[in-house]
Simulated scan of single mutants.
Amino acid sequence: MAVRSVVEQATQVLRRAILTGALAPGAEYSLRELAGMLDISFIPIREALRTLEGEGLVVMRPGRSAVVAPLGLDDLRGIYRLRRALEPEIAARSCLLLSEAELDRLAERAAGSGAVAGTDDDPHAFHLALLAPAATTWDIRVLTPLWRAGERYVRIGFGRTGPGPAGHRRDGAAHGELIAAFRTRDPATVSAAVERDLARTEKIALAALT
């Protein structure tokens, strides 16, 4: 259990460093360098990198090194193409199942913190909560790596455009619009709202490439 805990912690630390750009896209690091950064042995680093490779965040190289996955327009377009194919449809079904109590809880969170991508340890919890009533295990398995891969672009885009308090309010307002759409219980309204939110975050993500 102790070893597993170290692996999980290493995965979280490395994932956060990649998503924020602290470990730069395209940069290559040896396992020795990464182990030194985290002050742990090779074994948990190697296991953590395998997990991150499965999420599309690193590319393992023969020997003892890994490359932070580069940013690319084709990858970004692919991420959002797949998200658009899945999320509006799931949300359209979920709006008929999500309780008012859960919507109230999410509304309170959005109003209180802005739920800004890049500030929470789990920035996808809000969207997952909206989709959960209608999402299958496989839906979540497919969406999770897409969310994490796209999050890197969004975080770096926010970092370069400087979201600040205005950005926090803007993001909170966008999440409030999603909740308002869900309260209508109209699948078409919800689907359109999710499409608009995806277009908004894709625009921010594009800032990471300019």
Rank of each mutant, 00 (worst) to 15 (best):
P88T: 06
L130D: 02
R84M: 11
D39P: 02
W138M: 12
V58P: 06
L98C: 03
E89W: 10
V59D: 12
G150F: 05
V154Q: 11
G78S: 15
R84P: 01
P44R: 09
R155D: 04
R160G: 02
V142A: 11
A110H: 09
F158A: 13
E53N: 11
R93P: 00
E100G: 03
I156Y: 08
A66G: 03
S41I: 03
F126K: 05
R148Q: 08
W138I: 09
S94P: 02
G78Q: 07
E33S: 12
R93H: 14
A132C: 05
L71D: 06
R50V: 08
A125T: 00
A129H: 05
A149R: 15
A107P: 01
M37I: 11
M37W: 06
L82R: 15
L49S: 06
R152P: 04
E151Y: 12
E100Q: 12
L146D: 03
F126Y: 10
T144K: 13
I40H: 08
L96Y: 02
I40L: 13
L71R: 09
G162Y: 08
P88E: 12
I40F: 01
E89N: 15
R93D: 03
L76H: 07
L82H: 08
E151K: 02
F158V: 00
A134V: 01
D75Q: 15
A91F: 06
R105P: 00
L34R: 02
A132F: 11
L73I: 15
L143E: 01
G157W: 06
R81Y: 10
T51L: 14
L128H: 14
V59T: 09
L34P: 03
R141A: 14
R109T: 02
L76A: 03
R105Q: 09
P88Y: 09
L49I: 10
R105S: 08
E151G: 13
A107N: 05
R148K: 11
D120K: 01
E33K: 13
L103C: 07
R77V: 14
G118T: 04
C95Y: 04
T136C: 09
L49Y: 09
D121R: 11
H127S: 11
G63K: 07
L71T: 07
R141I: 00
V142Q: 03
W147H: 09
P70T: 06
S94E: 07
G112P: 11
P145L: 01
H127E: 13
H124W: 08
L106K: 06
A125D: 02
A101E: 14
P62A: 12
I79P: 01
L130G: 01
